[in-house]
């Protein structure tokens, strides 16, 4: 048996993933495909929000959706009815998507035809925040029934997101949800975060959100 050794690695666990994410971002930039990483808890209304978002934008740009779930394809079916190109990604028990899985999804979707690719990440506010997917921008949905204290409980998620969609504002009066307090808490963690209150059900706020996406896709294609 050889002698006992200590080998220093000194590497962040996320270093490999960060590198792959950076490469994917560069590729997408070249292909002029904007990738949105959409995250939230289960049941916050991601799929309904997406359906409304696609309806608002589908006449102006080609949209592709990657549905990431641990199992099943119910969300992919719902999205396919909007006419957008959709593929289902199964994480096989993993609670998040990493850059490599996202790349496989992008390859499956094909970038030639896609202006806006949306990754519907696994419903979870913890792990998806740790893994850079290679996205152009990150957005998250927080729904009113979840409570306005979520920025305090899941700080990293709010730190890495460019947009916070506060969904289900149509039922705000039935819950003790303080929109102002929620926004203040999110901005304390991330002064640049844009907060857009929406109701995917009634359509309120969807236009403001769609407008933000329009501008981002345009910027991504220009530079």
């Amino acid at each position: 048996m050889s002698e006992f050794r200590i080998l220093e690695i000194k590497q962040s666990v996320f270093a490999d993933n960060d590198k792959q994410a950076e490469e994917l971002r560069k590729e997408l930039k070249k292909e002029k495909t904007f990738l949105l990483n959409l995250m939230s808890s289960p049941g916050s209304g991601k799929t309904t929000t997406l359906t409304k978002t696609i309806a608002a934008l589908k006449d102006e740009m080609k949209i592709g959706v990657m549905e990431a779930d641990i199992d099943s394809d119910v969300d992919a079916h719902t999205i396919s009815e909007t006419g957008a190109k959709v593929i289902q990604l199964h994480t096989g028990g993993m609670c998040h998507l990493d850059a490599d899985m996202t790349k496989q999804g992008i390859l499956g979707l094909g970038t030639e035809e896609i202006d806006l690719a949306i990754l519907e990440n696994v419903g979870n506010l913890v792990c998806p925040a740790e893994f850079d997917t290679g996205s152009s921008k990150n957005a998250m949905i927080l729904s009113v029934p979840e409570g306005d204290d979520k920025p305090l409980k899941y700080p990293l998620m709010f730190t890495i997101c460019d947009v916070l969609l506060v969904n289900k504002i149509d039922v705000m009066e039935y819950f003790d949800f303080d929109l102002k307090a929620c926004e203040e808490r999110a901005k304390k963690l991330n002064p640049n975060i844009k907060v857009i209150p929406i109701s995917a059900k009634t359509g309120e706020g969807i236009e403001e959100w769609a407008q933000w996406l329009r501008e981002q896709v345009k910027k991504w294609k220009e530079a």
Binding site: I9, Q11, F14
Partner: peptide
């Protein structure tokens, strides 16, 4: 305070 590093391995 948010680090998550693999520092080293001890091995044969």
């Amino acid at each position: 305070g948010r680090e998550f590093y693999i520092k080293e391995i001890r091995c044969f």
